Amino acid sequence: MKYKQIKWLILFLPTITIALWEYIRHEFLLSYINMEMGNILSPIFVFIVTFVFLRHLFSILERMQEELRVAKAKEAARGEREKLARELHDGIAQSLFLVSVKMNKFGRRNHLEHDADFQKIKQTLQHVHEDTRQAITNLKYVPDEAAFSWTETIYQYVTELKRQHIMDVGLEWEIQEETLSSKEKVELFACIKEAVMNVIKHAKTNQVWIVAWEIDDGWICQIKDLGSGFTNEAIHSSKGYGLQIMKDRARDMEWGFTMKKIDNETVVQIKKEGK
């Protein structure tokens, strides 16, 4: 039912109701209901009929208005995301590319191709450039919530990792789709991506494992690698931005977060327990 039709029904329903009641009363009920009783029953009957039907119409109208509000909010958010993506692309991304070109020229001119510090700076710049490009992609891509599949997203992400970074990624995902809320899916996926990016940047390995399983009152997700990573002392003293982001996300979701070195294995663990 369209918005305009609902408004017309709300406007005319009381009039139609009283007209029908008066017609039926005078044509069929005068021998059973006298005029005085009919006059008393008229407002009661009109109230009951209009209350039942108008309540339903109002609920439809409210639902339509809420859907319109949500659609407008999503459109506004999409516009802001696209605007921010353009600003990142036209500003930071292009500036980083220009700096990278100038650094390569500077390195060749000063014969720094084999200088360890220079190569480390180049690698850092490349990581920043990749992070910026990924941020632009994330801003441009707004998943369709109705068709959003958590499991499919995880497998697509692993495929992209293998293709873009030539990594050996092991995936054992046993958390059921319905176990996670929409917000949990978004936040957990962001933590996984941040943990994997830390492995790519710092662990000096091309092997990583993503393991997740359900427990009696929640679930556990681990991201593991065999790279150089951190010592347990460095983990506790680290003030890295990526690590802090994961801690903050986990805290906001009331999840447990740990990162520790077990033998030669660095393990990032995110755990949800029942309350």
Rank of each mutant, 00 (worst) to 15 (best):
E273N: 08
V169M: 02
V208L: 04
A135Y: 05
D252M: 10
L57S: 08
Q207P: 00
I40F: 00
K183A: 09
S95F: 00
L139T: 03
I40D: 03
T205R: 04
L13Q: 07
V186I: 02
I270E: 03
Q126H: 06
E194W: 03
M167F: 09
Q134H: 11
K122S: 14
G242D: 12
H114G: 05
L112T: 10
G274M: 11
K183S: 05
I48G: 02
K83A: 12
P43I: 14
M103T: 02
I192R: 06
V70R: 05
T153I: 00
Y141Q: 02
E265Y: 01
E62F: 04
K193D: 14
S59H: 10
L98I: 09
N138P: 05
I136T: 12
K120I: 11
L41M: 05
R163M: 07
F106W: 01
L68H: 07
I175H: 14
W150M: 06
F12E: 09
A19W: 11
D248C: 08
W21E: 05
D263Y: 02
F45T: 15
G170V: 14
K122R: 04
R63I: 14
T132Q: 05
A250Q: 11
K4H: 08
V186Q: 12
Q119R: 14
V46E: 01
A146Q: 05
Q134V: 01
R163F: 05
H114P: 00
H114R: 14
K105P: 01
H56I: 10
Q126E: 08
A71F: 01
Y241K: 12
A212Y: 13
D131C: 09
T159Q: 13
G256R: 14
I192F: 08
R25N: 14
F189M: 07
